[in-house]
Design a binder for these strands. Structure first.
Length: 111
DNA sequence: CGTATGACGAGCC
DNA sequence: AGGCTCGCCATAC
């Protein structure tokens, strides 16, 4: 069952379309806990490879990769994103306004 | 059950 | 502007 918060995070992350990115805080907010960004990050840390999650599409609110670029999978994450068409600035910043993922962008007006 | 952790976020110095 | 600290919340042990 998807009772665990991690499970919900994984499911949501799995719905991020290719070429798009989302922030930890955004994921948390979509799950109803805008303050649980850290927990989302931890969920990513625990993401089972068998789920084949697009974990690389999750970045921090600054539009940057949280992992150390030259240490952990940060380098890999950047390569994966660029391979999907996500352009990364020289400073390592991604344009959230352009690549930011918005689930159901049409439901804005509905109550 | 209480303490510690963590791929964050926003504020403060 | 850049860097550091505190706060938040859900798991792990």
């Amino acid at each position: 069952m998807a009772s665990g918060f991690f499970q919900q995070v994984w499911r949501l992350v799995g719905q991020i379309p290719k070429g798009r990115v989302a922030s930890y805080g955004q994921i948390a907010a979509l799950l109803g806990n805008p303050r649980a960004a850290r927990t989302v990050g931890w969920a990513m840390h625990s993401c089972p490879a068998e789920l084949d999650l697009p974990w690389h599409r999750v970045i921090n609110s600054k539009g940057k990769i949280s992992l150390d670029a030259d240490y952990a999978g940060g380098d890999l994450q950047q390569q994966l994103l660029e391979a999907e068409g996500v352009q990364i600035g020289y400073n390592g910043v991604i344009d959230m306004q352009k690549y930011g993922w918005q689930p159901l962008p049409d439901k804005v007006v509905l109550p």
